[in-house]
């Protein structure tokens, strides 16, 4: 049985899927790419709720994208389900190894060390001739067993996939954040010693969260690869990871919808700002970041709570 909230969400998801049919292609493209990033940021939010900031989610974003690219290229398939599964598997496998090391670190060490790992992947890819070196390579557009409808001049399949994944993962993580495992993150952020004395291994909890974040990031990378149709090592560069951190901070970690919506807002802003003044985009980002840290440390989402409190009183 569905309760009221899930029903609303389901209707919203179906509506968004249908709206895709009348949307201009540039817009559905933008939303798809944004949701891909949104999933990465959602994973980052899992870590940030546990007090860990990763400056290396680009590692999994890029790994997911390259998994899609390499698999579609070498196995010659464009099956969207298969490609997504391969990308998630790539994130899972890499993070379960890297996570063993990273779950021992906190604070700036976690931030810097995760960045180093993503730079290792960057360094490898830049020099891999068979994967296109620093130019990367093109990825074929996906289909669902040959089904890939064109709407307004572009394939709409990726958009649909992104919407569905955003809702599915959003719902799962929403539930997760209210579960003992989810709340354990906040507990660890607040006091690790107490968590250990409550009988739980802090390192294990962080390890699991790290893997979850990685799978979300590689899924996001897969969506991006399938939508944009091109991948390059830049996806693992630390500035890409920095962008994810920016979106997470701007949006806030208070709700699963925050990173997803935040990513869409971010992409919209960027596409406008880029047209208006390409050389001040980073400056705008920087000023926004500082303003958020100073005036709105819990991100844009916290405005909603403030407004609702204001309305009540």
């Amino acid at each position: 049985m569905l309760n009221k909230n899930s029903l609303i969400l389901l209707v919203l998801a179906v509506a968004l899927i249908l709206i895709g049919l009348v949307m201009p292609y540039w817009f559905s493209f933008l939303v798809t790419v944004a949701l891909g990033k949104g999933l990465v940021v959602l994973g980052l939010v899992i870590l940030m709720r546990a007090g860990l900031v990763s400056f290396g989610q680009g590692l999994y974003y890029c790994a997911g994208a390259y998994a899609v690219g390499a698999f579609s290229h070498f196995v010659e398939t464009d099956n969207v389900i298969l490609l997504l599964a391969v990308a998630m598997l790539a994130g899972l496998v890499i993070s379960s190894v890297v996570g063993l090391l990273l779950s021992r670190y906190r604070d700036i060490f976690f931030a810097m060390f995760s960045m180093a790992f993503s730079m290792i992947l960057y360094g490898v890819l830049v020099k891999s001739a068979e994967l296109g070196s620093s130019d990367g390579f093109n990825v074929t557009s996906p289909s669902l067993f040959g089904f890939a409808p064109e709407v307004n001049g572009g394939s709409i399949l990726s958009y649909w996939v992104a919407i569905i994944l955003a809702f599915v993962f959003g719902a799962i993580i929403w539930r997760y954040f209210k579960s003992p495992m989810g709340v354990a993150g906040e507990a660890i952020r607040e006091n690790e010693i107490r968590v250990e004395y409550l009988g739980v291994s802090v390192q294990k909890v962080i390890y699991i969260k790290y893997i979850m974040a990685a799978v979300l990031a590689s899924t996001g990378g897969a969506i991006t690869a399938m939508t944009v149709g091109h991948i390059d090592p830049e996806m693992a560069y630390w500035t890409t990871s920095g962008e994810f951190v920016f979106i997470a901070l701007m949006a806030g970690t208070g709700h699963v919808a925050a990173p997803l919506l935040g990513a869409v807002i971010f992409e919209l802003l960027r596409s406008f700002a880029f047209q208006v003044s390409p050389y001040t985009w980073q400056m705008i980002l920087g000023i926004t970041l500082l303003a958020i840290i100073i005036f709105l440390p819990k991100g844009l989402w916290s405005l909603k709570d403030k407004l609702m409190k204001g309305a009540k009183s």
Partner: peptide, 15 residues
């Protein structure tokens, strides 16, 4: 929740 089991649930509600 932590005292109940060292394996924490992912999906059931804490509250």
């Amino acid at each position: 929740a932590m005292a109940e089991s060292k394996t924490l649930s992912f999906f059931s509600a804490l509250h």
